[in-house]
Simulated assay, not measured.
Amino acid sequence: MTNPLEDIKGFFNEKGQLKSWPAKRSRKLVAVEFLAGKFEEGRTYSEKEVNAILDEWHTFNDSALLRRELFENKWLDRTLDGREYWKK
């Protein structure tokens, strides 16, 4: 079985950070799953903490896009006001 990250290896820099966001939906899903792996289950994060983690793992300066993708793809859930996040 192939490693799904192989399909998006061109989107990473030498430090293992996403350097751009894939256009293809299938590749986006792999990237979102990669980012979701950076969060612990059973822990609640503030929006600021989520942004800090995401900023460690991407270089294109769009943590809002990544937060939204994690939420919309059901990797993270959040309070209605968006102040707290947790891994599903």
Rank of each mutant, 00 (worst) to 15 (best):
N61I: 05
L54C: 01
F34S: 08
L29I: 15
P22S: 07
A52V: 02
G42I: 03
G42T: 12
W57S: 00
A36R: 13
A23F: 10
G82K: 00
S20R: 15
Y85G: 01
L35H: 14
D7G: 03
A23V: 13
R27F: 13
W57D: 02
F11Q: 06
R78D: 02
A36D: 14
G10T: 02
V32T: 14
G37Y: 10
H58D: 05
K38T: 13
F11E: 09
K15E: 15
G82V: 06
E84V: 11
N61G: 01
E72C: 14
G10A: 04
D62N: 13
W21M: 07
A31W: 04
L70E: 01
K24F: 11
A64F: 02
P4N: 01
G42F: 03
E84T: 11
I8M: 01
T79F: 11
R68E: 05
E56H: 06
T2M: 11
W21Y: 15
R68T: 10
I8E: 00
R25I: 10
F39Y: 09
L65T: 03
E72I: 11
S46Q: 06
R78L: 09
L35W: 12
K48V: 15
N3I: 04
Q17T: 10
K48R: 15
S26F: 06
F71W: 11
G10C: 00
K19C: 12
P4G: 02
E41W: 05
E40L: 14
R83F: 03
H58M: 08
